[in-house]
Structure formats: structure tokens, C-alpha cells
Design a protein around this nucleic acid. Sequence first.
DNA 1: CCACGCTCCTGCGCGC
DNA 2: TGCGCGCAGGAGCGTG
Length: 274
Amino acid sequence: MPELPEVETTARGIRPSSLGRPIDRVVIRNASLRWPVPLHLTDILPGHAFTGLSRRGKYLLFQHPRGTLIIHLGMSGHLRVIPATKAAEKHDHIDIVMGIHCLRFNDPRRFGAMLWTESDPLQHPLLATLGPEPLEDGFDADYLLGRLRKKQIAIKLAIMDSHLVVGVGNIYANESLFLAGIHPQKPACDLTHPECTKLVDAIRRTLAAAIEAGGSSLRDYVQADGNKGWFQQQYRTYGRQDQPCHQCGDLIRLSRMGGRATYWCPHCQPFVAN
DNA sequence: CCACGCTCCTGCGCGC
DNA sequence: TGCGCGCAGGAGCGTG
């Protein structure tokens, strides 16, 4: 599902084709996403082109002379630039038509969102309280240690909180903790500075590798250009319960934390108190 | 402030 | 072959 690497991959994939092309019309077939899609987008967007496309966490920000279109792909959303003549298919909820091109939003599960703001998008209530970007300078061992110090919750749940750091969904939380050699159930406040260093490094390497690979793939996820991601073939723990760990041969274990599937290697990620 | 569980939704894989 | 169930999952939101 779209985690940060998928969103970044989408942004890179559609940036060249979605910017600088005057918008002719907006078609909203189904406004019922996570929040209602503002219907007046059909009046506001036409007549101008998107001028920029950036990403904050898993939110895509399309700059427009009149404001900013904020899009979240949820867990099954796709954004693609396709020929405007292509017939709409199931779950094609919104089209933004730009000449012979069309930016099309498809989202079977409708966990996604499309919002509009005419203020600074980074001050939007959904974005203002987000944690630092994992691949930027604000995310380091000192920051992590400071934020974890008072947290009693398990480290896996802590790093999946977008207010602590953005972009670490279930898959990458599992993978990062494996790389860092930290048990997912370890209380967040028990992590040492060296462990925080390892974890920051692991999160960075995991996300960077996934972006490099063009985004992961789970079932129906397809890249902006229609190719499937292949990072999933490199998973070390995710979906590998009862299969041997690539590092030590012990069997990968599966449990549930906060309702999410949690995978770990009992040998490489021992549950040790400090 | 903190921790936790519920909720939105559809498609798929599985067991019977 | 079909049916029903459980699961997948981001993240806001309500509750204690």
C-alpha cells in the first residue's frame, strides 16, 4: 500500500506530466472519500495549471495559483496521468483534465483524501502537527531519544505515529526494526542512544532503498507509470512468518500489535532489557 | 498529555 | 461453484 516511498514514487512519476498544463475541467464522479471532496474544485481549478508538486509525509501538494490541492492516497489510491480519452473504470473517482492529458485518481477502498486550501498548506490542520521527514535533517538520534523518553508504548507503535516521524507505515516499521536489531515490543522509553542511532539509520536506509526501487507493491499497488514496484521481493520480515531469517535461519515470528501484523526474528531482535 | 481501540472501505484468499 | 468470514491498512477521532 502506499507508504512514503510509493507516494514519493508517484510524485516523481507524475510531476513532469501534471505541471504547467492548463486545467480544462474537473470531473468528480464520487466525492465520498475519507472526507467529502470539495465540489467547488470544478470551478476553482480550471483556467490555470498546477505550478508545483511537493510531498509532506504521505500527502501530495499540488500548487495552483488559487491555492493548494492536497491529496492523500490512503491505502489503495493511485494517481496517474493518462490520455483524456481513456474511459473511466471502476473506482476512478476524480479526473483533472488538462488538454489531451488527464490526472486521474482511483481509490477502491476510498481511504484517500482530496482537499483544498487557500492558506499555507503546511499550516493545514492535517499537516501542521506532522513529525519530521525521515530522510531530512530534523530526524536524528537526539530527536528520537527525546521524543521516546516519556513514551511507554512499544517502539513499533511509536515509530508508526506520523506525529513522531512521517512515512513509517506497517511494512517499513517491521523492516526497520529488523535492520536495527530491535524487538518491536520494546518499550519506546527503554531505547538507548546507540539504539536510536541504529533505528534512525535503519528507517532511513529502508525508506531510501524503497524509493530507489520505485516503491513497494502489495497486491493491487501500481506505480504512477503503471509498473509494479519490486521492493517487496526484498522484504526481510514482512509476510515471512515461519520462514527462515535470511541472517540467522531462525523462523520469523508473527504477532499482532495495535491490530497490525508484526513480524520479527527472535534471534536478531532479542527482547532485552537494558 | 497519553494510550488505546474504533472507524472508514473494498477486494482477495481461504475454509467449508 | 458459491458463500461468508477475516484480513489488509493510514490516521483521525473519541474515550478513559
